[in-house]
Structure formats: C-alpha cells, structure tokens
C-alpha cells in the first residue's frame, strides 16, 4: 500500500513539476515515469536502511540515465526529463529543519542539519555526474552513433 501510494504520488509530483515548467504535453507522462523511477530507488534504499547519501546518489543516477535514454529516443533536451525527477530528491525537509533550528538559536543542530542538506545536494550532483560519465562511456556507443544535436 505504501509502495503503491509512493509510486503514484511520485509520478503525479514529477508530472506536476512538468506542468509548472511547461514541458511539452506529450512528454509529461515520461517525466512522471522518470520521477517515479528516481523516487522509488530512493524509497527502497532508505527502507532498507541505506544512508540517505548513497540512496540519493543512486536515485539521481537513475533519473539521469533514464533521462538520457528518453532524450535519445524522443530527440529532446535531456533536462526536460531530469529536472522533474531531481526535485523529489532535493533535501527540502532537512533544509527546513535546519532553518527552524537556526531561528530557534539552536546552532548545534542547525549546523549539522545544514551540513546534511548540503551533503545531500552534493550527492544529487554526484549522481548526475556519474550518469553523464556512464552515458558517454557506454550508452552513446551502444545506441546509434549518429552524430546529431547534443542530447
């Protein structure tokens, strides 16, 4: 039940962000699936008590790899797919708790929460970097070598 509602809602959330960013209508569903895939990776890893940092790296990596594949197949810029998928991973809750702690003069907690939020943001970046490397090394060779507009 939790799994199902998480799948459904992460799909809906990513598609909603697609609408806010004015993604072409026929690609909204694909945006949703990218977001869902990323979130489910994160969800399953955190359910199995994996630290948020590696979970975030894995989820961002998944998002970007699927994004690259979609971008190739549908001949559209890759950001259309990755942006919506990345948003669920952004440490909004942690950043919020850090801010609340700062306001309450609880600097010790605030700093550790802020550091955590910063590290999670770094993990998103790392996941994106890894997927680009992966894409350039493997996917680009396997899929059509046709040298058309950069994806």
């Amino acid at each position: 039940m939790t799994i199902l509602s998480n799948m459904l809602l992460s799909f809906l959330a990513a598609a909603s962000f697609g609408v806010m960013f004015n993604v072409p209508k026929k690609l909204l569903v694909k945006c949703g699936t990218v977001g869902m895939a990323g979130w489910m990776v994160f969800f399953f890893l955190s359910e199995h008590a994996v630290d948020p940092l590696p979970s975030t790296v894995a989820a961002a990596f998944t998002v970007a790899v699927i994004g690259h594949v979609y971008a190739r197949v549908y001949k559209t810029p890759v950001i259309i797919f990755t942006v919506a998928g990345i948003i669920p991973l952004v440490p909004g809750g942690t950043a919020y708790r850090a801010m609340r702690a700062f306001v309450q003069n609880d600097y010790e907690n605030a700093l550790s929460l802020a550091a955590k939020a910063f590290m999670i943001s770094g993990s998103i970046a790392l996941g994106l970097v890894l997927s680009d490397v992966f894409y350039q090394l493997i996917l680009r060779k396997k899929m059509r070598p046709e040298n058309d507009a950069a994806v």
Binding site: L9, L12, A13, S16, F17, G18, M20, G92
Partner: peptide, 14 residues
C-alpha cells in the same frame, strides 16, 4: 493547480 498537487504529493512522500 500543478503546484498545489505537487505540494500535496510531497506531504505523503515525506
């Protein structure tokens, strides 16, 4: 509406 729906979804996701 999309923003509202994203907000709602995240409450459950979090």
């Amino acid at each position: 509406f999309a923003a509202a729906s994203a907000s709602g979804c995240f409450v459950i996701l979090l």
